[in-house]
């Protein structure tokens, strides 16, 4: 399957990655190669095979509903690029 520039731009947008025009061709070429490797899977008929999502064939455990965390806002916000009045600041969100 060819992975062209249009496809690349669409995917880069979904993944929020910026690519310069110079990069685009190289990246598209690399991804085309990777997809060719992946496409080897298509040689096997798997119509009757049940997908395996997870190696563990067990079920979800449940957590009791009680508070285990305490407020660490000031400490945790030291890790953030930009905070003000306890809020994380980002460029204006336009809905």
């Amino acid at each position: 399957m060819a992975f062209d520039k249009t496809e690349l731009e669409k995917v880069a947008q979904l993944a929020r990655l910026h690519m310069s025009d110079a990069e685009k061709d190289e990246v598209a070429g690399r991804i085309t190669d990777i997809l060719a490797l992946i496409d080897q899977m298509q040689s096997v008929n798997t119509d009757s095979v049940t997908p395996l999502a997870h190696p563990l064939d067990v079920t979800q455990r449940l957590r009791p509903d009680y508070t285990t965390e305490s407020n660490r806002r000031d400490e945790l916000q030291k890790l953030a690029p930009r905070v003000e009045n306890g809020l994380y600041l980002v460029p204006k969100v336009i809905e």
Partner: peptide
């Protein structure tokens, strides 16, 4: 009392980000 996937308290009207843990 707590969030869906963490043991952080889930109470309406707390100070911003005081109920936001790791």
């Amino acid at each position: 009392k707590t969030k869906l996937f963490s043991g952080t308290a889930s109470v309406f009207g707390a100070e911003p980000n005081t109920e936001a843990n790791i």
